[in-house]
């Protein structure tokens, strides 16, 4: 997919996120919208996968460790053909295949997530299995900035470089906000690049909304040998909807019907 098409696709994904959250009446728009360009580019221009065979053993793996942003994942999976778009309107409903956080019920989701900090370890396990089986698949793991305050992330960071997981690429959605406020006020993460470098990772710093930079980063990460890569993507929380951008309240609050209407107008 070309850059303009990806931009169009990302806009469509953002619309789906707003629509499904408004319908569900709860959920997390802020981080879903900030990582939309990253995950859209991954699924529509990079990932080796087969929506008709979600558990294809040779597929590239994507694991969303920051599970609360699953509206984004669900929209991307539906657009890819893993299940019908209409399923999106059942988000967070009793019996739905689309649970409030990523779940094994959903075609295309292998391992559930939602409790922050656990996913990077899971991704390492997938990467090690690939090496053991001499398969050439890659593993991508989306982590949040607030999430990396979890100690387990740093246990995993140490292990990934110790095991030379060059088939692993972490994507950090650095939108600078967490539920309770600004990251820098709650628990500072800087110097972020230095931290990951010190843990033995190849770091790639990009604008997480620049499609060209995102695509280049995925390609560059793939060429790095003997160490894992992390794409530190500077993003805007709530990206694409003016009244949601950098507004902490929209970390975990769904738009009202009126707000959704306004948001969809902006995203048309």
């Amino acid at each position: 997919m070309q850059i303009r098409e990806l931009e169009k696709k990302a806009r469509k994904i953002r619309r789906l996120i707003i629509q499904m959250l408004a319908k569900a009446g709860s959920g997390h728009p802020g981080g879903s919208l900030s990582s939309t360009d990253l995950v859209t580019c991954l699924y529509f221009a990079k990932l080796r996968h087969n929506p008709k065979n979600p558990e294809w053993p040779d597929r590239d793996r994507f694991h969303m460790s920051k599970g609360h942003c699953c509206p984004l994942w669900y929209a991307v999976l539906a657009e890819s053909g893993y299940f019908k778009i209409d399923e999106l309107w059942n988000l967070r409903k009793l019996g739905s295949i689309l649970q409030g956080h990523p779940d094994w019920r959903t075609p295309g989701v292998t391992v559930a997530s939602g409790s922050l900090g656990q996913g990077l370890s899971v991704a390492i396990g997938m990467a090690l299995a690939g090496k053991l089986d001499k398969k050439d698949y890659r593993v991508y793991c989306l982590i949040g900035d607030g999430e990396i305050q979890e100690g387990q992330i740093w246990e995993a960071a140490m292990a990934a470089s110790h095991y030379s997981c060059d088939n692993l690429c972490a994507i950090l959605d650095y939108n600078c906000y967490q539920i309770d406020g600004k990251i820098s006020e709650i628990m500072e993460l800087e110097p972020l690049v230095d931290k990951w470098k010190a843990f033995g990772w190849h770091t790639i710093k990009i604008d997480g909304h620049n499609i060209r930079q995102i695509l280049q980063a995925f390609d560059r990460a793939e060429k790095i040998k003997n160490k894992p890569s992390i794409i530190i993507a500077r993003t805007t929380k709530g990206k694409g909807v003016s009244f949601m951008e950098n507004v902490v309240d929209f970390h975990g609050r769904a738009p009202t019907p009126e707000e959704a209407k306004k948001a969809l107008e902006e995203l048309s």
Partner: peptide, 21 residues
């Protein structure tokens, strides 16, 4: 795989490996 003194990572990596059969 000896993950060092890191039990949470131990269980997480175990899960990832198991997800690949």
């Amino acid at each position: 795989f000896n993950v060092g003194v890191a039990e949470q990572n131990l269980m997480g990596i175990a899960a990832g490996l198991a997800s690949c059969k």
